[in-house]
């Protein structure tokens, strides 16, 4: 495994290099803000980000060494968590707002026109505020995102031969990224006790992000069922795959 021969510092450098570019909506949200207009903008953006996410995953050291089936499975399980963590990272400097893209920054009120969205919006704002309090560093952020990817599903494909090897690789990749996170935290100049506390606080936020992602999937599924917004291609495929895994 390539990640096994990299030092934590080298691994973080590679993960930072893998970061996707900023994604722009490239057009104004239609006014007035209606449920359909906002959802159309959010799903357009998600579609673009998903394509970048695949490139990102392929650049994370070790990912392409997994079986293709496991690569597919991991991404299908974690895509909304990865999108949401990216959203939180971008929104850290915009208290009370969510920066979906540099040209789409929404306040709670603007998001409230979408039925059922306020609850998710508030949870996203709360998690973002927590990252703000913790003064999340970029090195820590990229490690958390890679951890989400490799930790997205324990139940990978069959447990025989090549597939078993792939699952063992996922566990080793998780260990490598965890070591990288520990290294990133150690740079902050905290005491041993404070470093352990910070590590725990950061990792505990991942369970909130998983919860948020599940809420978001349910919400998007509901929007699809109500025909509020048409979903196409990759986003539709990722939503359907998540619903299938969930069921």
């Amino acid at each position: 495994l390539v990640s096994a021969v990299l030092s934590p510092q080298e691994l973080i450098s590679r993960i930072i290099e893998a970061e996707p570019p900023e994604t722009y909506l490239m057009k104004d949200v239609k006014r007035p803000f209606t449920e359909a207009n906002v959802m159309m903008s959010l799903t357009n953006l998600a579609d673009k980000e998903l394509v970048h996410m695949i490139t990102w995953a392929k650049k994370i050291p070790g990912f392409v060494e997994l079986s293709l089936l496991d690569q597919v499975h991991l991404l299908e399980c974690c895509w909304l968590e990865v999108l949401m963590l990216g959203l939180m990272w971008r929104s850290v400097d915009h208290p009370g707002k969510l920066m979906f893209s540099p040209d789409l920054i929404l306040s709670r009120d603007e998001g409230s026109c979408v039925q059922g969205f306020v609850e998710i919006f508030d949870m996203l704002l709360a998690a973002t505020a927590r990252f703000r309090e913790l003064q999340l560093q970029k090195e820590e952020y990229v490690c958390l995102k890679a951890l989400i990817l490799f930790n997205s599903n324990l139940c990978l494909s069959s447990s025989e031969g090549e597939e078993l090897q792939s699952r063992t690789k996922v566990m080793r990749l998780l260990d490598s990224v965890t070591d990288a996170l520990v290294w990133a935290i150690s740079k902050t100049g905290l005491s041993f006790q404070q470093r352990s506390t910070r590590q725990a606080r950061l990792l505990m936020l991942l369970s909130h992000i998983r919860h948020l992602s599940n809420k978001g999937i349910d919400h998007l599924h509901c929007m699809k069922m109500r025909n509020v917004v048409p979903l196409y291609d990759l986003l539709l495929e990722m939503l359907d795959a998540h619903i299938m895994h969930g069921s």
């Binding site: 673009k48 690569q71 597919v72 495929e237």
Partner: peptide, 24 residues
């Protein structure tokens, strides 16, 4: 790998050695 899996866009993008951004 099932036929259904092979037809997935995600599957194709992961397998392609060129950037998925170029394909999108």
């Amino acid at each position: 790998t099932s036929l259904k899996e092979k037809h997935k866009i995600l599957h194709r993008l992961l397998q392609n050695s060129t950037s998925p951004v170029d394909l999108a």
